[in-house]
Amino acid sequence: MSTTAPGLHHDLPFDPAYGHTLDTLLAIAPPPDEPSDFDDFWTACYRRALAVDIAPALGPASRVGGHLVQSIHYTSTDGVRLGGWLTSPADGPIVRGTVYLHGYGGRAAPEPELLPPGTAAIWPCARGLGTASRLPGVPDNGAGHVLHGIDSAETYIHGGCVADVWCAATTLLRAHPAVAQQLAFVGDSFGGGIGAMAVAFDDRFHAVALGVPSFGHHPLRLTLPCTGSGDAVRRHHHQHPEVIRVLRYFDAATAATRVRQRAHVAAARFDPHVPPPGQFAVYNALAGPKTLHVLTAGHFDHPDAVMERSALNAARRDFLQE
């Protein structure tokens, strides 16, 4: 067993801080070799998503505490039918909207209490994940999902997941048009990385909150052992080095250089699942006004974890209602 910081004991065969200090993490730049057609690729993806007939179908509303909760299904690109939840205040006006995407653990229920009062939100399950969007032939675990279609930028599932966010935003805006004046995205881990790519090319969003975002700086991530989906990609790259050509299109740090909306990022200094250098690469690359919320650890239980999560939730609520 090794000790890396007070209260952070682990028996992993690598250092989940990767030898970094906060200063060195804040010095990590985005990948230097983005594809020359990066913007063209994502702009075309965005146009296809906006052209989709989302055909939303809402279930009956039930009151849960101070919120109305409904199941929702909508269509995304490739004709994929997705599920999730729509929540809104049971009483009082709706003054803002949020698209909230889950991590690789999926989502079994919405959590509207995480958001400020007056928020209408959609809680989509990205294609292949969660309890509502599983698909035949698509693994519903991180290690399998992250490799699905990875041999081509046109087929890689992360492109579809980004489109799922765009179509979720369209669905929320159709249900509650007034939130167009104050629409935000929130996502953690998998959801944070996918969200950075989505918000970079969708100016319908006015704010973005990312927690321990994944998929930042693939060239660096491919050199770092971890316990998350990045390890599956690293092993695949070892056998198929040419896959870097695809991954360059799906780099959250490269996308972050296009994010000019105000942003709040929670990044961890110690994380065995999503290496901190990738998380900070996303934060560092953001092009607009940004706030950094430093976590002791991500994807790792420690004595202050509950307190830190509570503080992060409070900081996010404040950020979202600015």
Rank of each mutant, 00 (worst) to 15 (best):
S2M: 06
T4L: 14
G7W: 07
L8E: 10
D11K: 07
G19C: 11
T24S: 14
L25G: 03
I28L: 01
P30V: 06
P35D: 10
D37Y: 13
F41C: 05
Y46T: 14
Y46L: 12
D53R: 06
D53T: 04
D53N: 09
A55G: 04
A57G: 10
P60V: 02
V64F: 01
H67Q: 10
I72C: 15
I72L: 15
S76L: 10
T77C: 14
R81Q: 04
L82G: 00
G84W: 06
P89C: 10
R96L: 07
G97T: 11
V99N: 12
L101W: 05
P110Y: 04
P112A: 01
L115R: 02
I122Y: 03
I122G: 01
R127T: 06
L129C: 05
G130M: 09
R134W: 00
V138I: 07
P139S: 08
L147G: 09
H148V: 00
G149Y: 07
G149S: 09
D151F: 12
Y156H: 08
A163G: 12
W166N: 10
A169H: 14
A169W: 13
T171Q: 03
A175L: 13
H176C: 15
Q181Y: 01
L183T: 13
F190P: 00
H206K: 14
A209Y: 05
S214E: 02
H217R: 03
H217S: 11
L220Y: 06
L222A: 07
T227C: 13
S229W: 00
R235E: 14
H238A: 15
V246D: 05
R248F: 01
F250C: 09
A253M: 08
Q261E: 01
H264K: 10
F270G: 00
P272W: 06
V274W: 02
V274H: 05
V274G: 02
A281V: 03
V282H: 06
L286A: 08
H299F: 02
F300P: 00
D301F: 13
P303H: 10
V306R: 15
R316M: 15
D318H: 13
L320H: 11
